[in-house]
Design a protein around this nucleic acid. Structure first.
Lengths: 338, 338
DNA sequence: ATGAAAGCGCTAACAC
DNA sequence: GTGTTAGCGCTTTCAT
């Protein structure tokens, strides 16, 4: 199949290529007859608009870049799923990049987006993003930038997050109301605001219900099932008193439950466990896992809609950045059903 | 930040823009001094190559399009994860499209890819792709097309799949060797080769071990936890004799286990259950779920590598298409441990 | 080792 | 309602 351009269509119909271009773009000044003739010929010749040429000329690509740590984490693939749907419905394409939690990769992805002249960038930063010239450059070039979940607050750009503080508070409060008193929190050694906010929710809930905060009950490690097990082992070995665990994330919670059961400790009777993320498996394990839902797909849809709304006006960075905060949802299941 | 082009750099250095272009592309005929001066000036002025212009002129975009049914299915997001990594390492970007199992959406995605002049397309077809002019058009335009997992064999394009027949056979054989004799198969009402192949593996395994095939033991429904439950209910209500279930997919297997346990039937003692897909939750449920692993990330890496290898030569469609078939992996866990 | 010039396929301002 | 014209920012061939 030969490559066919608007010139070929024009030649075929004895009109100029600019008329063809207008007809294809449904320009109001073109007669219906011409439009139909053009469309028919275009179809017959197998014409496909060349978006590359169109973008070069118009300065708009109708492409937005999305950078996430990893698609292999269901949280992110789920958000991207939401972003993708909304953006496609509105005529945008998605360029995808995974940072794999590496600052270098993230920087490279953004460089590619900039070179590709994307019309906007949606990102969730890596856990090691301490410097962020690559993000400030986006702003400087006046390319719309939005964050979801993992943000850089200093940057003053629009974002969609969930209220992690409230999520941490709710999880802890739920355990307290169920009568648990010595509540362990398994956190991350990674220094992300979303994690410290959950921790803050935990400590505030303890304070609110007049329970003492005990540093011995707080653990920090990598987000994995393995680390959940490690914490339980450490607690038992040191004979620390505890009757509940609020894990930063469901896989950690899962590991903790496994290890508790392995030691003959019943869940939720002797120890209650609650996670965070509402991973799919939580509803299927035994006991089913109480957790905090983060409204992932909605988060993707919200950030896409926010982009669509804000990118309408040229002065994307002039107003105070809009920060949408979604509400966490408490999912009560068996693991806290005392 | 003003938009800066190679002309700006040229003006700054009193050389022509074509020398700048060559320097930036590390052309061998340019002196090291010039290259360094150009690179320094480019950096100082904040130059970013315009890939749109470059693509228009060169005819290559270094972008490949990826269409999958849904990123919210971990199988697909995991494969895309693999594709993405390999492609980025080789200087390609990924345009992403979800078909949501809709032929119309799939067609639209491919139209966008074609208009965007992608250098190749990697796809996994929807369950309703019975007509496929949109795919033949890709071939006609000589754009490299590759399938993974869900293919259209008639199309004669390279692909990466796993041996579903063997997977079905292995799952069934495993149950038989564990002493199960009346094995139910829960299949899909959807008419995809990957599903009928698993069924064929099932029937062949029965025949191989001299077990009778009983149409009453085969169910067809939508892939969901719910349908797994429905099947168990139907079996019990009709008082059909059975002692094992091979489910087409893990969520179905999960639903079946739940319903068996709800009826006081022990797993794996009274009934053995095996799934297919190796979803993350399988390792965490009680009992842990035996299943067939599909090597998802590897599948993505393989299809990306196949693209890189084949797209090197112009005559992508001339040779017999290379079809890589990965081996399924049997994951033995508690749900079949009799 | 560098310059000159053409043109990729389109959009859009300006004519008539 | 349609034609003319001028680029968008590069790559690439042909000179020198």
């Amino acid at each position: 199949m030969q490559k066919v351009t608007i010139h070929d269509i024009a030649r075929e119909l004895n009109i100029t290529f600019s008329t063809v271009a207008r007809a294809l773009n449904d320009h109001p000044a073109i007669s219906v007859t011409t439009k139909e003739a053009v469309r028919e010929t275009a179809k017959r010749l197998g014409y496909r608009q060349n978006k590359v040429a169109s973008s070069l000329r118009s300065g708009r690509t109708n492409i937005i870049g999305v950078v996430v740590p990893s698609l292999d984490v269901s949280f992110f693939s789920s958000v991207v799923h939401g972003i993708e749907r909304v953006m496609h419905e509105n005529g945008y394409s998605i360029l995808l990049y995974q940072s794999n939690e590496s600052l270098k990769q993230e920087t490279k992805g953004i460089a590619t987006f900039l070179a590709s002249r994307v019309d906007g960038i949606i990102a969730s930063v890596t856990a090691e993003t301490f410097q962020y010239e690559h993000y400030t450059e986006i702003k400087k070039r006046n390319v719309p930038l939005l964050f979801f979940d993992r943000t850089l607050d200093e940057l003053q750009v629009p974002s969609v997050t969930i209220n992690d503080y409230k999520g941490g508070f709710m999880a802890t409060e739920h355990l307290i109301r169920k009568g648990y008193k010595r509540i362990v929190h398994i956190s991350s050694e990674r220094n992300l605001p979303i994690f410290s906010e959950r921790l803050r929710g935990y400590t505030d809930a303890l304070a609110y219900y007049d329970l003492p905060f005990d540093e011995n009950l707080v653990f920090r490690g990598n987000i994995s099932m393995e680390y959940g097990k490690t914490c339980v082992d450490a607690l038992l070995e040191k004979q620390v008193q505890f009757d509940a665990i609020f894990a930063l994330e469901d896989y950690m919670a899962m590991g903790a439950i496994h290890q508790l059961l392995a030691h003959g400790i019943t869940v939720p009777d002797q120890v209650g466990v609650i996670g965070f993320a509402n991973e799919a498996f939580g509803a299927y394990i035994t006991p089913t896992l109480s957790t905090i839902d983060q409204q992932t797909v909605k988060m993707g849809e919200e950030v896409a809609n926010l982009f669509l709304k804000l990118s309408k006006n040229k002065k994307f960075y002039e107003a105070e950045p809009e920060r949408v905060v979604l509400e966490p949802l408490l999912m009560i299941r068996q693991s806290t059903a005392r």
